[in-house]
Amino acid sequence: MTSYCKIDHVDKTFTRGSTETCVLKGITLDIEKGEYVSIIGHSGCGKSTLLNIVAGLTEATVGGVILEGKHVNEPGPDRAVVFQNHSLLPWLTVYDNVRLAVDKVFGAKKSRAERDEWTLHNLNLVQMTHAKDKRPSEISGGMKQRVGLARALAMEPKVLLLDEPFGALDALTRAHLQDTVMGLHQKLGNTVMMITHDVDEAVLLSDRIIMMTNGPAAQIGEILSVPIGRPRKRLELVTDATFLKCRQRVLEFLYERHRFVEAA
């Protein structure tokens, strides 16, 4: 039986001149429909590379990604990415940034009015309708990330890829945005794959946490299921025994068994 999205025996080797660096080794992962999966690991362990392989932005050296039974090896809107640095086009307004994606993905299927409505609907989902006519340089980092999220959601992706989406934000904005993402996942039932280096974030948001060993030749070290029901409440979880246990497991993995080695 095949899963919704399968990362199948992926190896990634970068070649520069005569030196070969093996970044990922034998990564196999099944993601179910509607599941929220986080990938956590120390910086440089190749987690972003893994996300880029799923997105199709980087090609796997060995193995591949199968989405709904089809092998995918080039980028496409069915695997929309929310980039760490938002990657909004600065010459377009908030609305036009989302509209560009909507026009491209639904240009043939929806009428002009429907596309306008769909764009506004997605901006509304992330509470950014009020700034629809602003340019990215005129809104805050958290708002930019919201627009990036709206752009990705508007593509109705089969898998939503989040590449450290909250990494560049301050703690309060990050918490606020995490709640938004959690709410949207609950509401829309997206399949999500998120890269993060924040333990609390991983436990709070995920159904499963994929812990990566240190590179080179990083592998999946351990997979942890987070058996906490949804909707989850940030404040209640602070004292929740399951939450604390999961958190401890991840911390132990990262800081005892696979401590970050500076020279690695």
């Binding site: 980028p75 496409g76 980039f83 640095n85």
Partner: peptide
Amino acid sequence: DYRNVAAVLQLNHFE
């Protein structure tokens, strides 16, 4: 970044 966005959106050469 912009090239990545274009790739995900599958913009053709003209676009």
